[in-house]
Amino acid sequence: MIVLKFIGYGFTAIIIGLLFMGIGRKYTARIQRRYGPPFWQAFIDVTKLFSKQSLSHNWIMDFGILMGFAGIVGTILFMPIGPWHFFSLMNGNIVIIMYFMTIGSLGMAMGVSASGNPNSTIGISRALTLMVGYEIPFVIAVIGLIFVSKSSLLGTMVSLQSGGIMNWNIIKYPFGFIAVEMALQAMLGEKPFDVITAPSEIASGPMVELSGKMMGLAFLQHAAQIFLETGIVVNLFLGGANNIWEFFLKQFVLFILSLTVNAISPRFKFEDAVKWLWTWPTVFALIQLLIIILT
């Protein structure tokens, strides 16, 4: 039974993630006054990738890519998706989520750097430094919320925000939301912060050596990551949801918000990206924290 539930969670994450990517590409195309690909384009890309021949340099590359994908899918179990929650005891423990997500990035990093291509390793070193960049504002905002809700479980946070829009955290703690929103932009690797897979500078960064099946897995991992990160922010600030579709809708709104920024903004120089992340969002998060401590 658990296995079925597990597979159900995994597939919802992937499908919704791919759906968001497809619609997102359509949405960006429409911003650029182009017709844009059909919204199920992402599914086609994934099947095409899985049908292609693939290569790998050594067993660590395969193990790494698998670990990456497994890490992200594993984290989704810890996050409450609307009314569903996989574990009753550890329902959305924010500390576990944050550390389990690092398995994903560690796995991807290890697999990709096993390929021995300098472009991919530069990409990974940028990815990790950026991770430190966006973790600070995110953590400060989350700490504020933990103090307020007296527990580090997302489940309890969601239950505290139930009942009408007025007591959503986005209303009660607007600065925290702004900080997390900026951090989300970097988490998803969207345009101002897509220094990691910068196609023009380091030839699509980590994904240089990934082909066919490997690229497919990386694609699915990215989709699941979108689902996860938007899901976390929804639980934190938009008060979760009492039915699934409302949860997906809120996730989609957040994703579209970050896509709009992505479509219109150029790319940061790498040091400036980290410096920017440590100034603006961190300032907002600190203001929020001070407000919480003082009141």
Binding site: P37, S204, V208
Partner: peptide, 15 residues
Amino acid sequence: DMERFGIGPMATPRQ
């Protein structure tokens, strides 16, 4: 708009 047909530029021969 070639992206209508799902055709898009890629950086490396592997992909």
